[in-house]
Design a protein around this nucleic acid. Structure first.
Lengths: 199, 199
DNA sequence: CAAGTCATGTAAACAGTTACATGATTGT
DNA sequence: ACAATCATGTAACTGTTTACATGACTTG
């Protein structure tokens, strides 16, 4: 049921439409929780029925009408309660890692390409997240921002997203190199471990 | 349908029972794909029906009987084909990050505790994975192991698991410290960024 | 004798994806 | 005209979790 709580968390920062929320799960939050617009619209109706949020139709000039939701007191309480409950183990399902696990029976070239592509995607995602961070922070330093009184949740989540993607990029690029060196069968020295596992 | 392919990938390394496989998804693979035993038993029946694997009942002295599966030629082909298809975006759903996103409306102490607990879990998971790596490698060095001819997929997946958990531990501990410093409202210098986002 | 591990399954409920459906407005 | 963005929804299908169900053997 944490999709519901993600929506409450986003609405705790201010009123938003389903369309607005679908972009949250596509930008700052997308490294840790993703949701399709279909899921969001359906879940918003349920939350409204349960009285945790309240939606009102708004006419717009130049744009289709939209339904803007605000958190109710009950919703705010439910969100606070959620933050007091132990989080469940994260769900991760990464097909690329399944491909890597199967690399000995695999089309190795294809696996190397996937790893390289993943590393490249991670880099562009980092660029995107850095821009988001800059927008959050405006002209403030990290320290100033943290003590400035505004909401810091989305900012911190964003920083963790950057860390996650940087790590992703680093390890994928490294494994791609390791596999490439092995494919080439050359006597070049194998790529150095950039992570420091103690290998 | 990648649960099926994960099972094929595991069976490509040798015959195994449902019980054996459930442990794979609980150890070396668990950072990137998890599956419950119920899912596994059900999926194995389906794969058997489709002729991708073949199960035979085996009596054991001192133990309940088990059904051991082997990959068929069709299964091996299907697995190879899978490694040639582009992987879908990874699925991640992390309630703790939702709690962090909602930290401004949250019980901050509870969030700090979760982050610290997550960091501790990540560390013990690293210990566990390092042991697995040691078992894979036996007495060989990383370089020797890679060129020794045996399967390297599970080994590499394991290394990525370690990297993932180390990163996890580092960022969770850092954010916990940042929140703690903020809670205490002291004029101690805020904790230094261990990641290097350029903050 | 209790707890833990080995070992396999079914059924109901819930969550998530894919496909379908519509329509306005803006910029090229 | 066409593509992109804004904006919201339903229905069918698939995949996952939770609950239920059972039973042998091992170790402390």
């Amino acid at each position: 049921m944490a999709l519901a709580h993600s929506l409450l968390a986003a609405l705790a920062l201010g009123p938003a439409s389903g369309y607005d929320l679908s972009k949250v799960f596509d930008s700052g939050m997308s490294d840790f929780w993703r949701a399709s617009s279909q899921q969001i619209y359906t879940e918003l109706h349920k939350l409204d029925d349960r009285g945790l949020i309240e939606g009102t139709l708004q006419q717009q000039s130049n744009r289709p009408q939209k339904r803007v939701y605000v958190l109710t007191d009950a919703g705010r309480t439910a969100l606070h309660e959620f933050t007091r409950t132990a989080p469940r183990r994260p769900v991760i399902r990464d097909e690329m890692m399944v491909k890597l696990y199967a690399v000995d029976s695999a089309d190795v070239e294809a696996v190397i390409e996937d790893l390289s592509a993943r590393a490249a995607e991670a880099h562009s995602r980092v660029q995107q997240l850095r821009q988001l961070v800059a927008i959050f922070r405006a002209d403030k330093s990290h320290e100033e921002f943290l003590s400035s009184g505004g909401p810091i949740g989305p900012y911190l989540t964003c920083l963790l997203g950057i860390a996650h993607e940087l790590d992703n990029a680093k390890v994928c690029a490294w494994i791609a190199e390791v596999l490439r060196a092995r494919e080439d069968g050359s006597d070049e020295p194998p790529p150095r471990d950039p992570i420091n596992f103690g290998i």
